[in-house]
Design a protein around this nucleic acid. Structure first.
Lengths: 324, 324
DNA sequence: GAACCCATGTAACTAGTTACATGATTCA
DNA sequence: TGAATCATGTAACTAGTTACATGGGTTC
């Protein structure tokens, strides 16, 4: 009662007030709830519950399981409920933000107009992604599963707040872009960034279709040029996915770009990591190619282990894996 | 060049790119720039510049001053400029927020409707204050003083972003309030919080006038009831100040509230701290009162030392101190 | 057989905060 | 006299992160 400052402890009390949970469950809930800004790492959670136990705000019940690690199930006490209520009634922290973009903008006089434009474009992309991700997380988060018993009426308001945050940031970016467009430019030729943006928006190097097979939606991309020439291309593909609300991509082409198959360029690694975070990609390469040995090794390793990026030689295998 | 992660270091490079600065100056700038979220404490700044010096991104010049501590003036190097540019061109961090209110709202089914209402009302007040404070800080921040040499065209965009953050939060709070109003209540009588809100908005217990003397604006508050009966009252006064864009208050009354003069209640301490953060208050108490000894001691101590809250017995002294 | 999920926990680290120490000058 | 500002810096702490260790179970 004396002084718990960290609100993480109170959040845990709030969760336990709904039902008894194990440390692991608490961790999973916090990690999957986008408006709880903690990473929810073990260290914090287990330390926090130990502290709560110490202060008598929760009780622990050890449940042994045959052939599985035993669980520590935590239950809130009356003192815990009291503490939780007093936290809820106490002054609420002001909302805070951290926007690196504002800091960079303050130093923007160092940048060329084209650099500024590409900075804003990729910032906008990142926000779009973040917004869609947050929304998905919200829909499947712990608080969304309460419909049975009374349902949490406030989740919609929370969602609105979060979506509002991202959408007003996007509107602001748009405004900044417009402002920048009015600035006198060094040269009056269309800048590299402006060209990139057009590519991005009309998909110059790639054709895409939104497909639906046996109730599952995916993006079908074809290209006559070598596939995945840059990180930007990967970025564009992910953005495209979010815009069409799908997470599966079928790509078809004759071969990969040189940079992609040369592992030392790091392009393949960076791109696979980006894909892995957001989408599942199946690539169909028609005909044998003369790829470097190390790339072939990676491909064969990928095709047995990785389940977010695989390379195939025919559509059937590709599709059945993609939509599995 | 290898790996500076912390963007604080880059911000320092950005500042030094405009002009050479001392550690102390860097600290002051960061502290007074609302979109730089670091507290800008000594430890961080001096450690950061030492690191930059170590990596050869800045140079140090010691300038001895007679009868003053010697300054270490830091200047950015060519490598430093290179590093700064590469940071500006690198991927921008996504915007992040921390809103305790969302977490509390997720657990709001524990609260009575009246508690929810007062929570939202005080949250809204805090945001209003924060917004006005940020705007003032922005106007007098380092980046605002660039008009002479080229002026920073981006500050307005930054201001817009920040103000937008607060105003959309306020709009959202309004929406939540409206939603809550539609919920079936336990009892249908006007709740305590709703009454408080009305008081707050029409100023029932106090009369106030906005005064202007020799070009300086202040708020003149009079009350027939004992002054400062609650922390809420102090909060309301501060809000009122911000709404009228002034920071000076002249209060007049017959006596203080009992809770205020009993130091052990902690009310006086809490209120003076709140005032001290935002406004300057002169209180005129007509006629001697029988206050506790310890309160009198505090008053006499205040009247010699404190320069944000003082107690007077006549208007002339009060006004001349307040507007000094 | 490798990777991943459940479930617990610890070690080592980074980032950031408050508070203190020093010492001169200015201001009331 | 004491308080604030300038100017440097350190100590001790809180909060939060990544990475590791363990060990059984399931899935590919």
């Amino acid at each position: 009662m004396e002084g718990i400052n960290m609100s993480l402890n109170h959040v845990i009390l709030g969760l336990l007030n709904r039902e008894p949970l194990t440390g692991y469950e608490i961790k999973k809930i916090i990690q999957s709830t986008p408006f709880m800004h903690w990473s929810g790492n073990n260290n914090q959670i287990y330390k926090a519950v130990a502290e709560l136990l110490d202060k008598g705000l929760v009780t622990k019940e050890v449940q042994h399981q045959e052939g599985a690690p035993s669980k520590n199930i935590y239950t809130i006490t009356d003192d815990g409920i009291k503490e939780l209520k007093s936290w809820l009634l106490s002054d609420t922290d002001e909302p805070v933000f951290q926007k690196q973009i504002l800091i960079k903008l303050a130093f923007a006089n160092l940048l060329k107009r084209s650099d500024l434009e590409s900075m804003l474009a990729s910032y906008a992309d990142a926000i779009k992604m973040q917004a869609v991700l947050s929304e998905k997380e919200l829909d499947k988060c712990y608080f969304a599963e309460q419909e049975a018993s009374g349902k949490n009426v406030f989740l919609d308001l929370i969602r609105e707040n979060i979506m509002n945050f991202y959408s007003s940031e996007l509107k602001w970016v748009q405004k900044v872009k417009e402002y920048i467009a009015t600035l006198p430019d060094e040269r009056n030729i269309p800048t590299e960034a402006a060209m990139k943006k057009e590519n991005n928006e009309v998909g110059l190097t790639m054709n895409y279709q939104v497909m639906e097979t046996s109730g599952k939606k995916y993006l079908y991309l074809t290209s006559k040029e070598p596939l995945i020439q840059s990180e930007q291309e990967a970025h564009d593909i992910i953005t495209l996915c979010f815009e069409h609300d799908t997470y599966a991509v079928l790509m078809e082409g004759d071969n990969f770009s040189d940079d992609f198959v040369k592992l030392r360029t790091g392009l393949a690694g960076a791109v696979l990591q980006k894909f892995g975070n957001y989408i599942k990609v199946a690539v169909i390469i028609k005909g044998e190619q003369n790829y470097p040995e190390r790339f072939k090794e990676m491909v064969s390793e990928l095709n047995t282990r990785n389940n977010t990026f695989r390379i195939f030689t025919n559509s059937e295998d590709a599709l059945s894996w993609l939509l599995a």
